[in-house]
Amino acid sequence: MDLYIDAEQAAAELGISLATLYTYISRRGIRSQKVPGTKKRQYWKADIDRIKSRKGKAQEAPQSGEQQNSQLTLLTPDGPYYRGQSAIALSETHSLEDVAALLWNIDRDSVFGDSVAMAPVELQKLYDVFEGASIADKAIGILPFIERANPRAFDLSHEGMCRTGADLLRWYAAIFAGRDIPHSEPLHIQTAALAGGSHEVADLIRRVLVISADHGFGAGTYAVRAVASTGVTPYRSVLAGFAIAPGRRNVLGHRAAIARLLTELDESPNPEQVIARRMQEGEDLPGFRIPWPYVDGDPRAQRLMEDLQRIRGDHPLFVKAAAAFAYAKNELGRHAGHGMVNDLIARVIGLPSREYLYPLGRCAGWVAHSIEGYMAEDVAQPVADYRGPLPQTR
């Protein structure tokens, strides 16, 4: 008797699509193992039979607002797929503008033209007020003024929101660089200028931005969609994503801890011992939390490590980090995640901060969710299950 079956057989047994099967892996406890020498997985047949035996029986109906439908990003063990196309494969040749247009379902040239959004008259004063603040806080404070200076932002048609999305991405890049106006040149070229501007660095940044564009329904995405559903412009809905970024329970909120760990690795003559000591003393390994549905490490992080090794494999910090990552994987079964690799890339190529790369890419996805959330025409209103004290009767 076969203990495992492949994905196609499992989906057929359950009468579901492959996409739905991937959601079952975590939510319904389907166990699997990797097929040696391939990227495929086999699924524990007993788990498939268990779920199959329950199909058709009464199940608790999902709460209103508990599940949201989307046509944007599918998460699989091989990485995210944007509208059916592999994000990792797209990163080989596409720019963030290309992928944004794909996610927004619009022609790239119709929204990423030469015209740029106007600057608010208060811009220099705002730069002075937010001097020294994080890029997220600067964006939260400045973007509403950019919205007000550009009346076309209030066009909430599909094409209008896409144009605003393009303006928003370019303004995010301008705010980080402290420029008075946004530029229309490719975003990865603009970013590379902050790190010396070499072709190979620009190409790596392009790959990072594409791979970071969207990752399904994280906390930031839920926040963005809920705000967008009320009918605000993308300038304001995307602010919801920035607002939760520093949250201690949010992946983006681990940036400071990841930075400290990388500094330890950089300063230590034995990077493996840094990892071993943290584990021996019961400390966490920030940047090593791998999100569902990745089983054997985050394929986005793995691909970017290969890309970084190709252009900066002899960089002292890369050498130490790679040794530490290998030790954590081989001895502890822990894998460096996408956020950790983003921070490593920023340091190795000489960017001022990782907080520029990842949120710039993710803005494209947040705009896509803003558009989809608003076009759904229903204000997001999850139903709460009250668990507090009940009224007393006489």
Rank of each mutant, 00 (worst) to 15 (best):
residue 2 D to K: 06
residue 5 I to E: 00
residue 5 I to N: 00
residue 9 Q to N: 05
residue 9 Q to T: 09
residue 10 A to L: 04
residue 18 L to E: 00
residue 24 Y to E: 13
residue 25 I to G: 02
residue 26 S to T: 08
residue 37 G to N: 10
residue 38 T to G: 11
residue 55 K to M: 15
residue 60 E to M: 15
residue 62 P to I: 15
residue 64 S to D: 15
residue 74 L to V: 08
residue 77 P to M: 07
residue 80 P to G: 10
residue 81 Y to I: 07
residue 95 S to D: 09
residue 100 A to Q: 01
residue 105 N to Q: 10
residue 106 I to A: 02
residue 107 D to H: 02
residue 110 S to F: 00
residue 110 S to W: 00
residue 128 D to R: 08
residue 130 F to W: 11
residue 130 F to I: 02
residue 131 E to P: 00
residue 134 S to N: 06
residue 136 A to L: 07
residue 137 D to P: 00
residue 146 I to F: 10
residue 151 P to K: 10
residue 158 H to I: 15
residue 163 R to V: 04
residue 164 T to V: 14
residue 172 Y to K: 13
residue 186 P to N: 14
residue 188 H to C: 05
residue 190 Q to Y: 10
residue 193 A to E: 13
residue 197 G to E: 04
residue 207 R to Q: 12
residue 207 R to K: 14
residue 208 V to R: 00
residue 225 R to L: 10
residue 226 A to L: 05
residue 229 S to E: 04
residue 241 G to D: 01
residue 249 R to M: 10
residue 264 E to K: 07
residue 264 E to H: 05
residue 267 E to Q: 12
residue 270 N to L: 15
residue 276 A to T: 09
residue 281 E to F: 08
residue 282 G to N: 06
residue 283 E to L: 12
residue 299 P to Q: 06
residue 304 L to C: 09
residue 307 D to C: 13
residue 310 R to A: 11
residue 312 R to D: 06
residue 315 H to K: 10
residue 322 A to Y: 08
residue 323 A to I: 12
residue 327 Y to K: 07
residue 330 N to C: 03
residue 333 G to S: 07
residue 335 H to N: 10
residue 336 A to W: 02
residue 337 G to N: 12
residue 343 D to W: 04
residue 346 A to M: 05
residue 352 P to G: 01
residue 355 E to P: 02
residue 356 Y to I: 07
residue 358 Y to S: 05
residue 359 P to C: 11
residue 361 G to Q: 08
residue 364 A to Q: 11
residue 365 G to W: 04
residue 365 G to I: 11
residue 366 W to E: 04
residue 376 A to V: 07
residue 376 A to E: 15
residue 379 V to W: 05
residue 380 A to K: 08
residue 381 Q to M: 10
residue 382 P to G: 03
residue 385 D to S: 07
residue 392 Q to W: 00
